[in-house]
């Protein structure tokens, strides 16, 4: 049976842990709000980019000499999987669920006899995947979005991926990230970026494109497309990074909320034990005194 002093120490330590988790929860909530605002602000650009791109791509798809970013390299043997996680832990199942999703995708690809390369964005993803696929990881990008998540971070990732693509190091690029739904729910999303997979509704609109306005292009269609596609890649990465950041803070907020509540429960239990023990000690001492007095 633990002594009174031990119990007191434990209660104090749980109390200070609770203070930390409560503070982390507040910080995560504030950061979540900011991340959401940022995601909101980035939406118009992505939407319009998509509109221009799909009207362009609609006309270009299936044509000879279309950019490999749009049409693919023609091969399907080497896959690059970009796994986006956070750099820091203590955010519930956030990182593990991405790692689990990534493992499933990678196993699938390996099972089909494809070659897989992994690019990790965020330290935690690398740590989790290293055990199973250590040899497949070709690089890690860390400290993304510090101090502030900006478009240049996404641009940097896009550049790195594009360089590899141009060097012919892979054929298909897929990104795995957590899509933010609410502070409690995040959806692991697998999205193919290269070749550019057209969103379904846009593809439908392009097919019914007879009545769509015919654009004039300056300079040529190909030139615009060849500039637009790399830009689009950066935009997609940016979107994924923002979603991921919002998800991370949401997940951390929920996790810390739970932790705070659990710490509260634990303090209650420990206090009861402490009080009982103290009472028992007092009773024992009384019995000793009384029986001593009786014996005299």
């Amino acid at each position: 049976m633990p002594s009174l002093k031990d119990l007191k120490n434990r209660i104090n330590s749980v109390k200070s842990t609770q203070k930390i988790t409560a503070a982390m929860k507040m910080v995560a909530a504030a950061k979540l709000r900011r991340a959401q605002e940022q995601a909101e602000a980035a939406r118009p650009f992505a939407e319009r980019m998509e509109r221009v791109l799909s009207s362009l791509a609609g006309g270009m798809a299936g044509q000879e000499g279309a950019s490999p970013l749009l049409a693919g390299t023609g091969a399907d043997t080497v896959h690059l999987v970009v796994v986006m996680t956070s750099d820091r832990g203590l955010c519930g199942a956030f990182n593990s669920s991405i790692a689990r999703g990534a493992r499933r995708v990678i196993r699938d690809l390996l099972g089909q006899g494809k070659q897989v390369k992994i690019l990790c964005v965020g330290r935690k993803g690398r740590d989790q995947l290293r055990r199973d696929f250590g040899k497949l990881i070709i690089g890690t990008i860390e400290d993304v979005g510090r101090p502030r998540l900006g478009f240049d971070a996404a641009d940097m990732i896009a550049h790195r991926v594009l360089e590899m693509f141009e060097a012919g190091e892979f054929d298909v690029c897929t990104v795995i990230y957590n899509q933010f739904k609410s502070a409690i729910t995040q959806i692991v999303t697998v999205q193919q970026l290269i070749p550019f997979a057209q969103p379904e509704p846009a593809a439908g609109a392009a097919n019914a494109g007879g009545e769509r306005p015919f654009y004039e292009y300056e300079p040529s269609e190909e030139e615009i497309l060849s500039e637009l596609l790399p830009r689009n890649l950066a935009v997609q990465f940016y979107k994924a990074l923002l979603e991921n950041a919002a998800s991370e803070h949401g997940a951390r907020m929920t996790a810390m909320d739970n932790a705070t509540r659990n710490a509260g429960d634990m303090i209650n239990k420990l206090s009861i034990t402490y009080n009982r023990t103290r009472q028992a000690t007092i009773t024992k001492e009384l019995i000793e005194i009384i029986s001593g007095a009786e014996a005299v």
Partner: peptide, 24 residues
């Protein structure tokens, strides 16, 4: 007229005319 940057919407308003520096 709408001017959008990756990080935010800079301008969105009805205007009379815009002159843009095109590549050509």
């Amino acid at each position: 007229f709408e001017l959008v940057a990756p990080e935010r919407l800079l301008l969105s308003q009805p205007v009379e005319m815009i002159v843009l520096p095109g590549a050509e």
